[in-house]
Design a protein around this nucleic acid. Sequence first.
DNA 1: ATGAAAATGAAATTCATTTTCATTTGGCCG
DNA 2: CGGCCAAATGAAAATGAATTTCATTTTCAT
Lengths: 164, 164
Amino acid sequence: MLQRRIDDHAPPSRESVREAQEIFYRHLKRVGLKHTDQRDTILGTFLETREHLSTDELFRLVRKKDAKIGFTTVYRTLKLLAECGLASAVPFPDGMARYEHQFNRRSHHHMVCTECGASVEFFSPEVSKLEEEIGHKYHFDATRHNFQIYGICEDCRKNIRKTV
Amino acid sequence: MLQRRIDDHAPPSRESVREAQEIFYRHLKRVGLKHTDQRDTILGTFLETREHLSTDELFRLVRKKDAKIGFTTVYRTLKLLAECGLASAVPFPDGMARYEHQFNRRSHHHMVCTECGASVEFFSPEVSKLEEEIGHKYHFDATRHNFQIYGICEDCRKNIRKTV
DNA sequence: ATGAAAATGAAATTCATTTTCATTTGGCCG
DNA sequence: CGGCCAAATGAAAATGAATTTCATTTTCAT
């Protein structure tokens, strides 16, 4: 599904990328895994994105940088990134697993158009407050949350009105 | 605290079930589909549940009532129910499509333990307010939302402390 | 009742995801 | 440096949920 995004963030600085790499390699070390060029390339590619990527989409981007990197490696690296918190899954209505990177990003949420798949990010500090409150109330150690609003965007409303 | 639910709802009354059936059959009529016993049985079974069901889980429940109903029919009926708003998908961390029925239920949200999968429902009127506000701000016609908090429940925290 | 349209369900297919396995590579240790 | 071995890689195969196909049965408007 085509992902149109409304997003005013600048791409991450060289500095941030290095910091993310450190988080990643510290994680690898901790679980006894190794530092490889492929993993570097995949992490770098992932950090450059501003989209919600399926494994296959990331694979295609990675392939542009190094055509010898296989889908399997991208798949496995994405899992590692999720493990150490640099990536996280975003549930989309099309059912395919999609990830976004979590590095140096404010906690944010998504509004998704169920007609065209366009997504908007929004920020709401109240949601984080809720996470904490609810977690406390039910004795959960709350670590993260998902908040998506589904609806129909302005453009699609116009189109629907035309076609009906 | 496994599968503890703050859910004070009684199973749906005969009355509510009939009302849901009407919604369903009005929808079928509108799109030119037919009224069948299988669809009745599947809807009835679905409304009795209080869980988040995968298609296969619902299929197994339906099979208890009528062993001749096939998986395919359950699958297709679940899609129809989602179409007319009686069911909605809940994204769970295991990635499998899960549905819950939306009939006569207050808008609610989920807190899920990432260790054992236990889920708690909670209610927060603020979330609905947010849905409306954010929708208005970005010119979306907001129809529904998902809000899940992930974390580790009390029991799992205890177990982890023991094993480490 | 009749027939056209839809429903059913078993089986086949699709397709994203995950695993397998033969080979290559990273990096620790002497 | 050189060897060792655990881990990484990636092509291919396997898996499994989701979806489609198709021959048969059922619904329902007339």
